[in-house]
Measured scan of single mutants.
Amino acid sequence: GPGLTDLFKTEKAAVKKMAKAIMADPSKADDVYQKWADKGYTLTQLSDFLKSKTRGKYDRVYNGYMTYR
């Protein structure tokens, strides 16, 4: 089956995709945050998933999740 690194890459891609969806349409934020909360994502995990070469690119999404939880 898929190894943990593959799983991480898949999760990371999914999280980034959802983060971009929030940035494009902030009204989606609560739905996405709820999904992440259901998956039990911690802020540390989210921070790892949303690492970007562009500093602060996903800060709004991260901060939103922090206040959501």
Rank of each mutant, 00 (worst) to 15 (best):
residue 4 L to P: 10
residue 37 A to C: 11
residue 1 G to K: 12
residue 47 S to E: 10
residue 30 D to Q: 12
residue 15 V to M: 03
residue 53 K to N: 15
residue 60 R to L: 15
residue 52 S to I: 09
residue 62 Y to L: 15
residue 20 K to C: 07
residue 14 A to G: 06
residue 22 I to K: 00
residue 23 M to F: 05
residue 48 D to S: 14
residue 65 Y to E: 01
residue 50 L to V: 03
residue 22 I to D: 01
residue 33 Y to C: 00
residue 13 A to Q: 12
residue 24 A to Y: 08
residue 35 K to I: 13
residue 4 L to N: 12
residue 24 A to M: 10
residue 28 K to G: 06
residue 43 L to C: 08
residue 26 P to V: 05
residue 2 P to M: 08
residue 6 D to V: 10
residue 59 D to H: 05
residue 30 D to M: 12
residue 32 V to S: 03
residue 54 T to F: 09
residue 44 T to L: 12
residue 34 Q to M: 12
residue 15 V to A: 04
residue 27 S to C: 11
residue 35 K to Y: 11
residue 67 T to R: 15
residue 68 Y to M: 03
residue 16 K to M: 08
residue 40 G to A: 04
residue 43 L to D: 06
residue 17 K to Q: 10
residue 46 L to C: 02
residue 12 K to G: 07
residue 4 L to I: 14
residue 14 A to F: 10
residue 65 Y to P: 00
residue 61 V to W: 01
residue 38 D to Q: 13
residue 31 D to N: 07
residue 33 Y to H: 02
residue 2 P to S: 14
residue 7 L to R: 11
residue 9 K to M: 07
residue 57 K to V: 06
residue 47 S to T: 09
residue 4 L to M: 15
residue 40 G to Y: 02
residue 50 L to T: 02
residue 21 A to T: 12
residue 61 V to T: 02
residue 61 V to G: 00
residue 34 Q to R: 13
residue 6 D to Q: 11
residue 23 M to I: 11
residue 15 V to L: 03
residue 40 G to E: 05
residue 24 A to S: 08
residue 27 S to K: 10
residue 6 D to P: 10
residue 31 D to I: 09
residue 27 S to T: 12
residue 69 R to T: 14
residue 68 Y to T: 02
residue 62 Y to T: 07
residue 58 Y to E: 01
residue 66 M to W: 07
residue 51 K to I: 10
residue 13 A to F: 07
residue 22 I to Y: 00
residue 63 N to I: 14
residue 56 G to I: 04
residue 8 F to Y: 15
residue 42 T to H: 03
residue 52 S to L: 03
residue 27 S to P: 03
residue 61 V to M: 02
residue 13 A to I: 13
residue 47 S to H: 12
residue 59 D to F: 09
residue 19 A to T: 02
residue 29 A to E: 05
residue 43 L to T: 06
residue 24 A to N: 11
residue 54 T to P: 15
residue 18 M to C: 10
residue 23 M to G: 02
residue 23 M to C: 05
residue 18 M to R: 02
residue 51 K to V: 08
residue 42 T to W: 02
residue 37 A to E: 06
residue 27 S to L: 10
residue 55 R to Y: 13
residue 34 Q to H: 06
residue 67 T to H: 14
residue 24 A to W: 05
residue 42 T to M: 02
residue 3 G to C: 15
residue 49 F to A: 05
residue 57 K to G: 04
residue 24 A to D: 12
residue 50 L to S: 00
residue 45 Q to W: 03
residue 38 D to C: 11
residue 41 Y to I: 14
residue 32 V to P: 01
residue 63 N to Q: 11
residue 28 K to M: 13
residue 59 D to T: 08
residue 25 D to T: 03
residue 36 W to M: 02
residue 57 K to L: 07
residue 56 G to F: 07
residue 65 Y to S: 00
residue 45 Q to D: 08
residue 5 T to E: 13
residue 44 T to Y: 10
residue 30 D to R: 11
residue 31 D to A: 12
residue 37 A to N: 10
residue 16 K to T: 06
residue 1 G to C: 15
residue 40 G to C: 06
residue 29 A to S: 09
residue 68 Y to R: 02
residue 11 E to H: 05
residue 26 P to T: 05
residue 8 F to I: 13
residue 1 G to D: 11
residue 34 Q to I: 05
residue 44 T to D: 11
residue 11 E to M: 06
residue 7 L to F: 12
residue 51 K to Q: 09
residue 34 Q to K: 15
residue 24 A to R: 13
residue 31 D to S: 14
residue 2 P to E: 12
residue 61 V to I: 11
residue 4 L to F: 13
residue 27 S to E: 07
residue 16 K to P: 01
residue 29 A to T: 05
residue 35 K to S: 13
residue 61 V to H: 01
residue 60 R to D: 08
residue 43 L to H: 04
residue 32 V to W: 02
residue 43 L to I: 06
residue 9 K to I: 08
residue 55 R to H: 15
residue 55 R to C: 13
residue 5 T to A: 12
residue 39 K to Q: 09
residue 51 K to A: 10
residue 23 M to V: 05
residue 53 K to Y: 07
residue 27 S to Q: 09
residue 32 V to T: 10
residue 45 Q to C: 05
residue 66 M to C: 11
residue 10 T to W: 11
residue 2 P to R: 04
residue 53 K to T: 11
residue 10 T to N: 08
residue 55 R to N: 14
residue 62 Y to V: 15
residue 68 Y to C: 02
residue 6 D to R: 04
residue 43 L to F: 10
residue 22 I to S: 02
residue 11 E to F: 03
residue 2 P to L: 13
residue 57 K to Y: 11
residue 9 K to R: 08
residue 14 A to N: 11
residue 8 F to Q: 09
residue 19 A to E: 00
residue 11 E to T: 08
residue 30 D to V: 15
residue 24 A to E: 09
residue 11 E to D: 05
residue 29 A to W: 02
residue 65 Y to Q: 00
residue 23 M to H: 04
residue 64 G to A: 05
residue 25 D to V: 03
residue 23 M to Y: 04
residue 54 T to E: 09
residue 61 V to R: 00
residue 41 Y to D: 01
residue 40 G to I: 01
residue 35 K to C: 13
residue 28 K to R: 12
residue 67 T to G: 07
residue 19 A to V: 04
residue 59 D to P: 02
residue 15 V to K: 00
residue 19 A to R: 01
residue 48 D to K: 15
residue 62 Y to M: 15
residue 34 Q to E: 09
residue 42 T to Y: 02
residue 21 A to Q: 12
residue 28 K to I: 15
residue 16 K to S: 04
residue 37 A to P: 00
residue 36 W to P: 00
residue 6 D to T: 08
residue 49 F to V: 04
residue 56 G to P: 04
residue 46 L to M: 10
residue 15 V to H: 01
residue 22 I to R: 00
residue 65 Y to K: 00
residue 5 T to F: 07
residue 69 R to C: 14
residue 16 K to V: 13
residue 28 K to C: 14
residue 22 I to G: 01
residue 67 T to N: 14
residue 39 K to H: 08
residue 47 S to M: 13
residue 31 D to M: 11
residue 26 P to K: 05
residue 40 G to S: 04
residue 13 A to P: 03
residue 52 S to C: 09
residue 63 N to F: 15
residue 27 S to H: 06
residue 57 K to R: 06
residue 13 A to S: 09
residue 11 E to I: 05
residue 59 D to G: 05
residue 21 A to N: 06
residue 41 Y to Q: 00
residue 41 Y to S: 02
residue 7 L to N: 14
residue 3 G to S: 14
residue 1 G to M: 09
residue 41 Y to V: 07
residue 12 K to S: 11
residue 31 D to C: 14
residue 56 G to H: 10
residue 37 A to K: 08
residue 28 K to Y: 07
residue 15 V to R: 00
residue 56 G to E: 04
residue 52 S to H: 07
residue 36 W to L: 02
residue 32 V to N: 03
residue 8 F to P: 06
residue 42 T to D: 05
residue 54 T to C: 12
residue 67 T to L: 14
residue 50 L to K: 01
residue 1 G to A: 10
residue 23 M to T: 03
residue 8 F to N: 07
residue 7 L to W: 14
residue 49 F to I: 06
residue 64 G to I: 01
residue 27 S to F: 05
residue 63 N to V: 14
residue 60 R to Q: 14
residue 47 S to K: 15
residue 62 Y to P: 00
residue 55 R to T: 14
residue 26 P to N: 08
residue 59 D to Y: 10
residue 63 N to M: 12
residue 52 S to T: 11
residue 33 Y to S: 01
residue 19 A to I: 03
residue 69 R to E: 04
residue 35 K to R: 11
residue 26 P to H: 07
residue 47 S to R: 15
residue 60 R to C: 12
residue 35 K to E: 12
residue 4 L to A: 13
residue 65 Y to W: 03
residue 28 K to L: 13
residue 22 I to T: 03
residue 56 G to V: 03
residue 41 Y to L: 11
residue 68 Y to N: 02
residue 6 D to I: 10
residue 60 R to H: 10
residue 14 A to Y: 13
residue 37 A to T: 09
residue 49 F to G: 02
residue 46 L to K: 00
residue 39 K to C: 12
residue 43 L to N: 04
residue 36 W to Q: 00
residue 29 A to Y: 02
residue 17 K to V: 07
residue 15 V to F: 03
residue 30 D to I: 12
residue 16 K to I: 15
residue 3 G to F: 10
residue 42 T to R: 02
residue 7 L to M: 12
residue 29 A to F: 02
residue 56 G to N: 10
residue 58 Y to F: 06
residue 8 F to E: 08
residue 47 S to A: 13
residue 46 L to V: 07
residue 35 K to P: 00
residue 13 A to N: 10
residue 63 N to R: 14
residue 50 L to Q: 00
residue 62 Y to S: 03
residue 60 R to Y: 10
residue 41 Y to K: 01
residue 60 R to N: 11
residue 67 T to W: 13
residue 60 R to T: 12
residue 36 W to F: 03
residue 58 Y to K: 00
residue 4 L to R: 10
residue 1 G to P: 14
residue 55 R to I: 15
residue 54 T to D: 14
residue 59 D to M: 08
residue 43 L to S: 05
residue 7 L to C: 15
residue 64 G to N: 04
residue 1 G to N: 09
residue 19 A to K: 00
residue 2 P to C: 15
residue 43 L to V: 07
residue 66 M to E: 09
residue 52 S to P: 07
residue 51 K to R: 10
residue 37 A to L: 15
residue 36 W to N: 00
residue 60 R to F: 12
residue 68 Y to S: 03
residue 49 F to Y: 07
residue 3 G to E: 12
residue 24 A to H: 08
residue 22 I to F: 01
residue 54 T to L: 07
residue 66 M to H: 06
residue 61 V to Y: 02
residue 9 K to Q: 09
residue 30 D to H: 11
residue 25 D to G: 03
residue 19 A to G: 02
residue 66 M to S: 10
residue 11 E to Q: 09
residue 49 F to W: 13
residue 54 T to W: 07
residue 13 A to D: 08
residue 11 E to V: 06
residue 12 K to Q: 15
residue 38 D to S: 11
residue 12 K to M: 14
residue 37 A to R: 09
residue 5 T to N: 12
residue 33 Y to M: 01
residue 67 T to V: 14
residue 31 D to P: 06
residue 4 L to Y: 10
residue 21 A to M: 13
residue 19 A to M: 02
residue 54 T to V: 13
residue 55 R to K: 15
residue 20 K to F: 05
residue 2 P to V: 11
residue 68 Y to A: 02
residue 51 K to M: 09
residue 34 Q to A: 13
residue 2 P to Y: 05
residue 41 Y to C: 03
residue 48 D to T: 14
residue 21 A to I: 10
residue 67 T to I: 14
residue 32 V to D: 01
residue 3 G to I: 13
residue 38 D to F: 09
residue 13 A to R: 13
residue 54 T to K: 14
residue 50 L to H: 00
residue 51 K to E: 11
residue 12 K to H: 05
residue 48 D to H: 15
residue 24 A to T: 08
residue 36 W to S: 00
residue 65 Y to A: 01
residue 62 Y to K: 13
residue 45 Q to L: 06
residue 30 D to E: 12
residue 20 K to N: 14
residue 66 M to G: 05
residue 69 R to Q: 11
residue 64 G to W: 03
residue 21 A to S: 12
residue 23 M to K: 04
residue 23 M to R: 03
residue 28 K to H: 09
residue 26 P to Y: 07
residue 36 W to R: 00
residue 58 Y to I: 02
residue 68 Y to L: 02
residue 17 K to T: 07
residue 9 K to N: 11
residue 27 S to N: 08
residue 58 Y to T: 01
residue 38 D to R: 09
residue 57 K to D: 05
residue 33 Y to W: 02
residue 53 K to D: 15
residue 13 A to C: 14
residue 40 G to F: 03
residue 40 G to K: 05
residue 38 D to H: 09
residue 7 L to H: 13
residue 27 S to R: 12
residue 63 N to G: 06
residue 38 D to W: 06
